[in-house]
Amino acid sequence: MPWDRNQMAARAAQELEDGMYVNLGIGIPTLVANYVGDKDITLQSENGMLGMGPFPFEGEEDPDLINAGKQTITELSRTSYFDSATSFGMIRGGKIAAAILGAMEVAENGDLANWMIPGKLVKGMGGAMDLVAGVGRVVVVMDHTNKHGESKVLKECTLPLTGRGVVDRIITNLGVLDVVDGGLKIVELADGVTEEEFRAATEATLV
């Protein structure tokens, strides 16, 4: 059985080590926070906060306290706030250990596309280009194939790039891949997924 959203998030949480400062993207990456267990992880929200807490209780929402997805959140005892230039200074400056992000396509050389589909409404890249260019390690969490069954793990991205050669590891519903010299290396298969099935769903070169 391929992994579901929560199992993918739980697998992605294994990428995080005690003491890390981490930025989580929107969608499945947000769920990763539910699976960090006892590890001491500080979440960064690029609109200007380190130490992001959970959603507030009903009635305690604060319009001055939101995450990068514009959702109301809370602070923790460790929280600090700063302006956007400082926030992206720590991102661009390599101080954030890892980013876990969603993707539309990833290529075997680590190219990432996750911000626009030509011909469709373009909303913008937000902080995604800064994150993938700056953080120490980029982990992508996404479905292995699109809704038409076509591979999202490609030889070359077809969509406009968010970053060139920026992805380190890919976690999909079928398993885990690393970007290495010459292509992608299978690190792990989801429970019950065969290597044959995995290869059939992958367009990229597997080494």
């Binding site: 959970p54 959603f55 507030p56 209780f57 009903e58 009635g59 305690e60 929402e61 319009p63 001055d64 939101i66 997805g69 514009k70 959702q71 109301t72 959140i73």
Partner: peptide, 14 residues
């Protein structure tokens, strides 16, 4: 100070 995405958790979850 309008809120764009009002997200909350239930008290029982605490």
């Amino acid at each position: 100070k309008r809120i764009e995405q009002r997200t909350t958790r239930k008290r029982e979850e605490a």
